[in-house]
Design a binder for these strands. Structure first.
Lengths: 156, 156, 156, 156
DNA sequence: TTTT
DNA sequence: TTTT
């Protein structure tokens, strides 16, 4: 009991967010995030290695993602590992891992999509007045302000 | 804007928690936490180096700390760095750093103080029914369930 | 480029380590780690949710794991997410995620397996003189002392 | 024993790095990093709170910082808390905390200082051939490739 | 499929 | 003293 399951990622989106509005006022966004690491191999050649992560955001954070993120966006993410298990059509047990995002922060984007004045680096800033939006902004210094929906009990 | 300020500590308490009940139903607990690292120096001798951290907990977490932690307790902590600045009696500007705890988890205690059956490794488990207790337990997998008081606006 | 891919886990092993000695002096250990989170559902009932993680350790850390860890051991882990992809016997592309461990620390075991005197909380402490042991111990305060083999270029 | 002392920061530099070359081929860089968090107070007004951190880098990382970082640079940092203690001129014991940087990654700067072609977001990328440079680049996905000098034994 |  |  009493565990810690924490993931910290910083990378770029490989595609625009995929957002689904569900019954009961629920929203979920799925993101594909690339984290690339480069190192030199034994011959001194630079090697790049990219890992792709499936991110899942719920509620207000999903809406913020839909509104401000797009292919190429650079974000910092905190979350946890969550596995889905199911049976495939052959009746085989399958497992898939996703990162359940608890907070994220937009980084130094070129902001062309945010319509913000000036074109400077932006965050998911000033997401108007929605409480959920506030939460995502607040998370910049820690996931402590996360609103309902961030908990792990499934949102439906 | 949009920063991350996150601290992760795992160590042992150097003393029992110091808890103060303030006006307005506020509670604050101060803890001294030691994190010890050992390494070998250039001569292959093992060296231990201990860093002492001043932790500050508010609200429900302070109460849980008061109830379950004591000198020697091993805990895992997530928080952020916060500085206090003031003038000393010479009129000099002074600064002090504390770790504002956002969540913590008790580890492998010998549980003699928790009255739990069996003496197995325990956490701040089963802290009965208090909502605050729930919050601290929940934080084990992320600080997302933190209750009021975890935000950064000062609690008074 | 320039990404961060970091995982922090704290939990218990579901089984003894599985260790394989490979050609070329390489060793790999596979661990199953459970991180359990508990929270109250909307009805106030306590719910426990366990996530199982597949950990992979190489080199000296694999040997330390073999020597000191066993089913039930509580450990703190830092690592990164790594995916394996392959084709299954139906010719389908499959993907599996593992946690590549970069450092770990043993926590508060009751040490019955480590033969340490006294039964106090122990870590992978004093793992005698092996350099590998030193590395794993050192990582407790940061993965900075990781020895060869911690890099991401595959060890064979 | 066996502790974890980890700090993760993401913010902007308040000034250019201060770099000192010491005897014995040692280099140290000091940085001032701001992490800003914004939240709404109880009246719904947006409040910004900035924490300033003193960072210390050694060796190759200090050189990379000198070469690529400047006032305003946005960086992601991993490190640990380290305290200095000394006696002030009144003979009083004083303590100061610094963040010992173990790895860092440059983020989405507008790169005007790096002379890189195009003005796109850059990291401390391709820092040519210096081994130290490699180390800092490598740290982007984890501090596991840190070279000598990242250890905690003082570099002189 | 991102980014440099 | 940064950044938005």
């Amino acid at each position: 009991m009493a565990g810690v399951n924490k993931v910290i990622l910083l990378g770029n989106l490989g595609a625009d967010p995929e957002v689904k509005y569900l019954e009961g006022d629920n929203v979920v966004a799925n993101l594909r995030l690339a984290t690339t690491e480069s190192y030199k191999d034994r011959n001194g050649n630079k090697v790049e290695q990219t890992e792709w992560h499936d991110l899942e955001l719920w509620g207000g954070q999903a809406k913020i993602a839909e509104q401000y993120l797009k292919k190429g966006s650079q974000i910092y993410v905190e979350g946890k590992i969550k596995s889905d298990t199911w049976q495939d059509d052959q009746g085989q047990n399958r497992k898939r891992i996703k990162i359940r995002v608890l907070s994220f922060t937009m980084l130094g984007g070129r902001s062309d999509s945010m319509g913000n004045e000036g074109g400077n680096p932006t965050q998911q800033s000033q997401p108007t007045s929605k409480p959920a939006a506030q939460s995502a902004a607040a998370t910049s210094s820690g996931p402590d302000l996360s609103p309902a929906g961030d908990d792990d009990d499934l949102p439906f």
